[in-house]
Design a protein around this nucleic acid. Structure first.
Length: 874
RNA sequence: GCGGGUGUGGUGGAACUGGUAGACACGCUAGACUUAGGAUCUAGUGCCGCAAGGUGUGGGGGUUCGAGUCCCUCCACCCGCACCA
């Protein structure tokens, strides 16, 4: 970035003041400091429940206290602050809180690498980031600030956990789980992306471990159902959640095994193809895999199982992983036609989905088709599509589409959708199967083998087993006298004074649980805690939550579409079912803001470069030509970042806010552009000058006398009111801040261009004050400052949002576009009250229009009132 | 493969339920004021054309008096899920 801003500021200071009582130049740093100090003292955004006022709960995703805010935060919180300020100006009782998602791994890593205690590191980071947020002029009720690492917060989480434990919603089981060797902890399914850890991006392994789970699957149906009842959420997020829950309906069918007691249960969505099931595929991990293997097949089966388990999970689920299997030597019986079906193990069958066993229908499932061809297994066509004639002998791929059932005894001739129901009925009547629903969603794995998190409040006793810590003993505080070696797993497990305790039930020596909660547990209910952050008798105060919740607007990044946003919905339902709250869903409206992007640049010698490491397209260190890269999300690793502190220090918070709001609509990605920032800074300078230059003129101006205005003044006034309307509507419904700001820019341009300023001081005053008022949610500091300079005794906060005058909106004349055969050939001004006939006449009278009509027959004239006239000729 | 999204000037982006495409801003060009300008102000700026005019919203087709907007089709890019039985 060029250092223009800096140069200019130093000049401002040296500039002497001229005339008036107002500084000629805009000095953002001075102004912003003054107003922030003022706000710090008066706490204007402190709120409490007020039954007489409509509430509005505006929530932004709270940050992880990494130490410094980044541009994503600036954008997120600028968007939120506009809405909070706007709603407040409109008279709502606005809850706008901020806090810290303060548990998590980076704190521990800092401890290991730099010897700073996680608690100290976290507190310091919070202090620093709070200062940064205050410097942005965000209108939070700081009295509600919370940090999730505070025992006063997590003790209530422990309490809720105990209640979940009582109801069986939290449980411990041994299961194959995701293990991140880098983070030395397990992860939930949602936290694994592409077989990699969501935080450190390293490959995740599968391990069989005893872990704590929350029974989110019990809520699968309700979580899914409500995705159809959240009209205020982006459809894309709802779809992602639906896909993640992954409901499929079908049948569970029981196959008996020839000559044996055991049965094999399968889940299928295609009971209509049951007559085509010619063999069975089991996952290699299936509990019956070995039991069903005959002695003569044993060696081969063992070898196969070992081979499959040696292969990495990522390969097993990749597209080009070749389907392989092995025959167990056993046969099962098709419950519909009694056919003997060989039982195979298949490397593509997943133990984690359905029952881990699949009835194979090679003619109507592509995987089964490939498998059958490879092992020369029988095929039977049972679904004939319309207009095709499938033949099992010549098919080259499975037919997975709809059709008519064939070779299916009494079901033949039915269309397959009807057939699904009939077969299900039949199976249910015979007791060999039942309709069933299967979900992809699995229970939420919440235990972590890490120190810096909420201790899971249970004790292990040799006699009593797993014993919950009694409520009266909460919180189980995280001990602070800990050594961080970075080796040998969680340091909690090594702390004898923590681990050794007595059993709350029998008093015998016992051991504490040393795992802590996934940090997504804390973020699943912080928005409820904000309603009564200091409540010291319960997790929440019911009355406060009843008043404030649900959040009217939630704003944050889309990366949490199926993480935080699903967990938070689940947790809300849990607390509802525990009788603590009465809402079903936590967030009425959701806005997922786009990423902040910037072009990367690299030096052949030094790799990625920070923006300040290049000058005139060259690397500042070696003068090599810089290679421009792609436009990507700002990230430290690629060094395509702008530091908010530097930006605010150079231009002020108002410019930083204005740019992020103006450059693109909130839900789209924002492309960083230094010159765009300059442009916003220049605009604020223009607004400053507009007030400064007209200060004297409008100082004594009274109210506008609408009846006595010359046309130009009336036109300006019309634009003033049109702008109020547009900005109000752009903010309110759709968050189109960019167009709202553009409209104010147009108004500023119009005021500057207005020729008769001196003759219309009242109109000028109204116009200029309107600019200041409309901009205040976006750029609060400069607006409050200008508002004072305009001689107002109250603050903008106190005087509310302006309303528009419908009468002032009415125009005297309208500009009508005249088209000939759909092409614009002229424009005519007509009186606003002219009827269609008059408008048509005026249009046809236009000289240029005449020129095009000449010599042709006018076939038709279309008049769109107030807009255009289209003359159809030829 | 399935699902979702996006394609508009040199750039970021506007365009209400089909009605002047390119608001606003950046950049650029020329000029003014200046010791200077990277400040400020004025004018211009989709493309072709001296002009009249033509042409133009990823490509092709359609509906309509009129299409960025509606319908069909194809293409490119982005995101999510992915052997889910």
């Amino acid at each position: 970035m060029r250092i223009t801003g800096l140069c200019r500021f130093s000049r401002f200071r040296s500039q002497h003041r001229r005339g008036g009582c107002m500084q000629e130049r805009y000095n953002p740093l001075e102004i912003e400091k003054r107003w922030q100090d003022q706000w710090g003292k008066s706490q204007p955004w402190k709120v409490s429940e007020d039954a007489h006022k409509s509430k509005y709960y505006l929530l932004e995703m709270f940050p992880y206290p990494s130490g410094r805010i980044h541009m994503g935060h600036v954008r997120n919180y600028s968007i939120g602050d506009v809405v909070a300020r706007f709603k407040r100006l409109q008279g709502f009782n606005v809850l706008h809180p901020m806090g810290w998602d303060a548990f998590g791994m980076p704190a521990e890593n800092a401890a290991i690498q730099h010897g700073i205690h996680p608690a100290v590191w976290t507190r310091d980071n919070i202090d620093n980031m709070r200062t940064q947020l205050k410097r942005m002029g965000l209108s939070y009720d700081w009295g509600r600030e919370l940090a999730t690492c505070d025992p006063d917060y997590y003790r209530w989480e422990q309490l809720i956990f105990l209640k979940m434990l009582e109801k069986g919603l939290a449980y411990k089981k041994s299961a194959a789980v995701n293990w991140c060797p880098e983070c030395e902890t397990v992860l939930a399914n949602e936290q694994v992306e592409d077989e990699c850890c969501w935080r450190c991006d390293n490959k995740v392994e599968q391990k069989e471990l005893d872990q704590w789970f929350f029974r989110i699957t019990s809520y699968a149906e309700e979580l899914l159902d409500w995705t159809y009842r959240l009209p205020g959420w982006p459809e894309s997020v709802l779809i992602m959640q639906r896909n993640w829950i992954g409901k499929s309906t079908g049948c569970e069918i029981v196959f008996s095994v020839a000559g044996r007691e055991e049965t094999i249960r399968v889940f299928t969505t295609r009971p209509d193809t049951l007559f085509g099931a010619t063999f069975m595929s089991l996952a290699p991990e299936h509990p019956l895999a070995r039991a069903l293997t005959t002695p003569e097949r044993s060696a081969e089966v063992e070898a196969f199982i070992r081979k499959v388990q040696a292969v990495e999970q990522s390969q097993r689920t990749s597209d080009d992983y070749e389907k392989e299997g092995v025959f167990t030597g056993s046969y099962c019986i098709n419950p519909l036609n009694g056919a003997r079906m060989p039982v195979y193990l298949g490397n593509f069958v997943l133990m984690g989905y359905g029952t881990g066993a699949v009835m194979a229908v090679p003619t109507h499932d592509q995987r089964d088709f490939e498998f059958a061809r490879k092992y020369a297994l029988p095929m039977q066509v049972v679904i004939q599509p319309e207009g095709k004639k499938l033949d099992a002998a010549t098919m080259t791929e499975a037919w997975e589409g709809p059709g008519t059932m064939v070779n299916s005894a009494q079901f033949s001739g039915l269309d397959n959708e009807t057939g699904k129901q009939k077969v299900a009925d039949f199976l249910e009547a015979r007791g060999t199967g039942q309709r069933s629903v299967n979900y992809r969603l699995r229970d939420w794995l919440v235990s972590r083998q890490r120190y810096w998190g909420t201790p899971i409040p249970v004790v292990y006793c040799d006699d009593c087993g797993v014993v919950p810590v009694p409520e009266r003993d909460l919180p189980v505080e995280l001990p602070t006298d800990i050594e961080f070696t970075g080796e040998g797993g969680s340091p909690l497990a090594a702390l004898e004074s923590f681990v050794n305790t007595s059993c709350p039930r029998c008093g015998q020596p016992a051991r504490r649980e040393t795992d802590t909660f996934d940090t997504f547990v804390e973020s699943s209910w912080y928005f409820l805690r904000y309603a009564s952050p200091h409540c010291d008798t319960a997790p929440i105060d019911g009355a406060a939550v009843d008043y404030w919740l649900p959040a009217d607007q939630y704003i944050g990044g889309v990366e949490h579409a199926v993480l935080h946003l699903l967990y938070a919905r689940f947790w809300t339902k849990i607390m509802r079912d525990l009788g603590m709250i009465s809402i079903d869903e936590p967030f009425q409206n959701l806005l997922t803001q786009g990423m902040v992007c910037m072009e990367t640049r690299a030096c052949p010698e030094h790799g990625w470069l920070y923006p300040e490491e290049t000058e005139n397209g060259r690397c500042t260190r070696c003068q090599a030509e810089v290679v421009p890269g792609r436009n990507e999300k700002m990230s430290k690793s690629k060094k395509n970042v702008i530091d908010p502190d530097g930006l605010i220090g150079r231009y002020g918070a108002d410019t930083a806010r204005l740019f992020t709001l103006f450059a693109s609509p909130p839900e789209k990605d924002l492309e960083w552009n230094d010159q765009g920032v300059e442009g916003c800074f220049r605009f604020l300078n223009r607004v400053w000058r507009l007030v400064a230059e007209n200060h004297a003129l409008i100082a004594g101006a009274g109210a506008v006398d609408a009846a006595e205005l010359p046309p130009a003044a009336r036109a300006l006034r019309r634009q003033v009111h049109r702008t109020i309307k547009k900005v109000t509507e752009d903010i309110d419904g759709s968050f189109h801040f960019n167009t709202a700001i553009a409209a104010v820019m147009e108004l500023v341009n119009a005021i500057s261009a207005f020729a008769d300023k001196a003759a219309a001081p009242a109109v000028m005053r109204e116009a200029i004050e309107t600019v200041v008022r409309l901009l205040s949610p976006f750029v609060p500091h400069i607006c409050e400052e200008l508002w004072q300079h305009l001689g107002n005794r109250t603050t903008l906060e106190e005087c509310g949002w302006p309303s528009w005058d419908e009468q002032a909106l009415a125009a005297d004349t309208l500009l009508i576009v005249v088209q000939v055969n759909g092409k614009v050939r002229g424009k005519v001004n007509v009186p606003a009250d002219a009827d269609s006939r008059a408008v048509e006449a005026a249009a046809l009278a236009d000289a240029n229009v005449q020129r095009f009509i000449e010599g042709n027959a006018v076939r038709k004239v279309i008049v769109v009132p107030g807009r255009l006239v289209n003359v159809v000729i030829g």
